[in-house]
C-alpha cells in the first residue's frame, strides 16, 4: 500500500482535484473543455519533456524557455521576411538543436556546471532574440497552412494534442525502451559508475541537453503558428511551469527520478488547475499562489527521495 501511495499518490491526488472540478466547475467535464485543457498543456508538456531529458542525465537546463523564444523569433522573423514557412520552421528547430548542443559542449567540454552554463546561454539567447526583433514582435496574418500546424483540428481534436502525444510517446520510448535511454539514466543515476562501465557519460549529457534544446525548438515553431507572431520573450513564462511539471512528475511513478510519464501528468495537473481555477471564477492571483505551492511541495517531496545532486549544484 505504501508503495502504491509513493508511486501514484500525486497522480491520485490529481484525480481528486479532477473530481472536485468535475463536480464544482461548470463545463469542466465537457468534451470541448477536456480538449481545450489538453491543447493548452501541449506547449508546456513539450518543453517539460525536453527538460526531463536534461535532468535524466543529472543536468539542469534553465535556458530552454529563452532558447524557445529565440527559435520562435528566428522562425517568425523568416516568415515575416517572406521566406517559405517550411524553411523557417526548420530554422527554428535547428536553433533549438544547436543551442542545446552548445549547452552540452559548455557543460561537458568546458566543464561549466549546467546551472551556470544554461543561465549564461539563456542570457545570450534572450539577448539575441531582442537583437533580432529590436523588442518589437513579428506579427502578421501568415500562411494558413503554417498556422494550421497549431490551430488546425483533426475532427474535433486540435492538432497540437497530436504533436504533444508524439513528443511524449517518443520521449517515453527513447528513455525507457532504448539503450540510449538506459545509458542516459545510468549517467544521471551514477555518472562515475556508468563511466567505468564503458558508457560515454559526457556524450549522454550532451544528448540530454541537446534534446532539451530540440524540444524548445519544436515548442517554438508551434507557438509561432499558434499566435501568428513571434516576440522575444514569448516562451518565458514556461520556465517555472515546466520545471514545476517535471518536479511534480518526479513524485510519481518512479519517485525521485525524472520520468516522461510523470512529467506529462505533472504538466496536466498544472493545466487542469489553470483551467479549473478560471472555470471556478477564482481570483487570478490564486493561480500564481497554487503554482508556487506546487513547486515548493514537489521539490520538498522530490528532494526527500532524490538520490542525486541535480538540485544541489
Amino acid at each position: 500500500m505504501k508503495t502504491i501511495i509513493a508511486k501514484y499518490g500525486t497522480a491520485i491526488t490529481g484525480l481528486v482535484i479532477l473530481v472536485v472540478l468535475i463536480l464544482f466547475a461548470r463545463n469542466f467535464a465537457s468534451s470541448a473543455n477536456m480538449l481545450n485543457v489538453l491543447k493548452n498543456t501541449s506547449f508546456l508538456t513539450i518543453l517539460a519533456v525536453g527538460f526531463t531529458f536534461a535532468l535524466i542525465t543529472s543536468e539542469l537546463d534553465l535556458s530552454f524557455a529563452n532558447i524557445a523564444s529565440l527559435a520562435a523569433v528566428v522562425t517568425g522573423g523568416m516568415i515575416y521576411s517572406g521566406i517559405a514557412w517550411p524553411l523557417a520552421a526548420l530554422a527554428g528547430l535547428a536553433v533549438g538543436l544547436v543551442a542545446g548542443y552548445v549547452n552540452g559542449l559548455v557543460v561537458t567540454v568546458a566543464k561549466v556546471p549546467s546551472l551556470i552554463a544554461t543561465l549564461g546561454t539563456a542570457s545570450i539567447a534572450g539577448g539575441l532574440a531582442f537583437m533580432l526583433t529590436g523588442g518589437v514582435a513579428f506579427v502578421g496574418r501568415w500562411d494558413p497552412v503554417f498556422l494550421s500546424l497549431a490551430r488546425g483540428k483533426v475532427g474535433p481534436v486540435p492538432v497540437l494534442i497530436f504533436f504533444m502525444a508524439a513528443v511524449v510517446i517518443a520521449g517515453w520510448f527513447v528513455s525507457r525502451k532504448t539503450p540510449l535511454g538506459v545509458h542516459m539514466l545510468a549517467t544521471g543515476e551514477a555518472t562515475e559508475a556508468a563511466h567505468r562501465a564503458g558508457i560515454a557519460t559526457r556524450r549522454m549529457k550532451r544528448i540530454g541537453l541537446t534534446l532539451s534544446g530540440l524540444a524548445a525548438g519544436i515548442a517554438a515553431v508551434l507557438l509561432v503558428a499558434s499566435l501568428s507572431s513571434a516576440a522575444p520573450q514569448m516562451a518565458g513564462d514556461y520556465l517555472l511551469n515546466a520545471i514545476a511539471a517535471v518536479l511534480l512528475g518526479m513524485t510519481m511513478f518512479e519517485p525521485g527520478r525524472p520520468n516522461i510519464a510523470g512529467t506529462f501528468v505533472g504538466a496536466l495537473i498544472i493545466s487542469v488547475l489553470d483551467n479549473g481555477l478560471v472555470l471556478l471564477g477564482a481570483p487570478y492571483y490564486l493561480q500564481d499562489i497554487m503554482l508556487g505551492l506546487i513547486v515548493i511541495g514537489s521539490v520538498s517531496v522530490s528532494a526527500s527521495v532524490l538520490k542525486k545532486a541535480a538540485f544541489s549544484v
Binding site: G9, F24, L280, G281, P283, L293, I294, G297
Partner: peptide, 27 residues
C-alpha cells in the same frame, strides 16, 4: 505537510472558490 496533503488542500480550496450567483450575468 506532504505534497499530497498540499494538493488535497488545494482541491478543497478550489471547491471553496466556487461561489457564483446562480443566473447572474457573467463577465
Amino acid at each position: 505537510m506532504t505534497l499530497k496533503h498540499l494538493l488535497a488542500a488545494g482541491a478543497l480550496a478550489l471547491a471553496g472558490a466556487h461561489a457564483t450567483t446562480a443566473d447572474a450575468f457573467e463577465l
